[in-house]
């Protein structure tokens, strides 16, 4: 039965890989809409959630989205990204809800250890508060399994208990495309339509669909300070300290989040096409190149997810 080597060109399928990923994501979004009574879609203005919005358009137009957009604002965002967020929601004529970590701080539910620390992990508190306020039974997010090793083990429909916690050792079995979004009151589902996408897939899709992105995703001049292998942008929140050697460099962001923990990479890529070429040949992973918060320990992300993070 060991046939001789086949011709290397397989039959070309009807769907190419982006078609397939798109169809799967649309299917997942419609399952959320079909099974959940009050979902929300997390939209930050970042590239993955921009892709989610295009997928939602493909899934539900000419109808309205069967969910509002929700942003958990750390207050540590690049203004270009916030402007983009508002413009996009307006253009789509969909409802955008913004809840901020700073409100949680004012309420006393978020307490910082130091004034300038990253608010990334504190988003979990504000997210859970928003879930409680609106009674959301599902939140759709743009997380991908290729981002991080704990994410690689997470279900597409990920069950969270009433504390928002993820229990990696006690996940619901997920078979075929039969997603189980049933929850009791207070519990919720995090649904990840682009779980099976990689960073490269996201960029290829952005190119194919001609999606607009905030300008900081493309090469621009920015003052930065080298911190080990990473570049720390010089901003109001992260000013240069005495002795720092501030350099003006051509950089772009691969991922966009809390200013204090997201680093740009050196790059000349000023178009989507050039970004794709760089992404295809890079030797550093997306989070490895850009996140100051996941380098703390091997299990940093897993720990945050157990506490309610995305």
């Amino acid at each position: 039965m060991n046939a001789p080597a086949p011709a290397t060109a397989p039959v070309r399928p009807a769907l190419d890989h982006l078609d397939w990923l798109e169809a799967e994501a649309i299917y997942i979004l419609r399952e959320v809409a079909g099974q959940c009574s009050n979902p929300a879609l997390l939209f930050s203005g970042g590239k993955d959630s921009i892709v989610l919005l295009r997928l939602a358009e493909k899934a539900f137009r000419p109808g309205r989205f069967p969910f509002p957009l929700l942003h958990i604002d750390t207050g540590h965002n690049y203004p270009e990204v916030i402007d983009f967020r508002d413009a996009r929601a307006c253009e789509l004529n969909e409802r955008l809800i913004v809840r901020s970590v700073e409100s949680s701080m004012a309420r006393g539910t978020v307490r910082l250890n130091s004034a300038d620390e990253s608010r990334n992990k504190h988003q979990s508190v504000t997210l859970l508060e928003a879930i409680g306020e609106f009674g959301f039974d599902a939140c759709i997010g743009g997380a991908r399994r290729d981002e991080e090793k704990a994410r690689a083990k997470e279900r597409i429909f990920s069950f969270r208990d009433e504390f928002g916690g993820w229990d990696p050792k006690n996940q619901r079995p997920e078979l075929w495309d039969l997603f189980n979004a049933r929850v009791h009151k207070g519990e919720n589902i995090r649904a990840f339509p682009i779980s099976n996408w990689t960073e490269l897939d996201v960029w290829q899709y952005i190119e194919r669909e001609g999606l607009a992105l905030p300008p900081i995703y493309f090469a621009h001049l920015r003052p930065v300070v080298r911190k080990g292998n990473l570049l720390q942008p010089v901003t109001e929140l992260t000013p240069a300290r005495d002795g720092d050697n501030v350099e003006l460099m051509q950089v772009r962001f691969r991922t966009v989040g809390d200013i204090t923990c997201t680093a740009p990479v050196e790059s000349d890529a000023d178009t989507v096409h050039k970004v794709i070429a760089e992404t295809a040949t890079t030797t550093i992973s997306e989070r490895g190149a850009t996140r100051l918060d996941d380098q703390a320990s091997e299990a940093a992300m897993e720990q945050r997810k157990k506490e309610g993070y995305f």
Binding site: K153, P168, K169, N196, E298, A299
Partner: peptide, 17 residues
């Protein structure tokens, strides 16, 4: 081996993609 428990025990507990 993506989970803490897996790394600790040196075994694979769950399906990984």
């Amino acid at each position: 081996d993506g989970l803490q428990a897996e790394r600790e025990q040196g075994i694979t507990i769950d399906v990984a993609y």
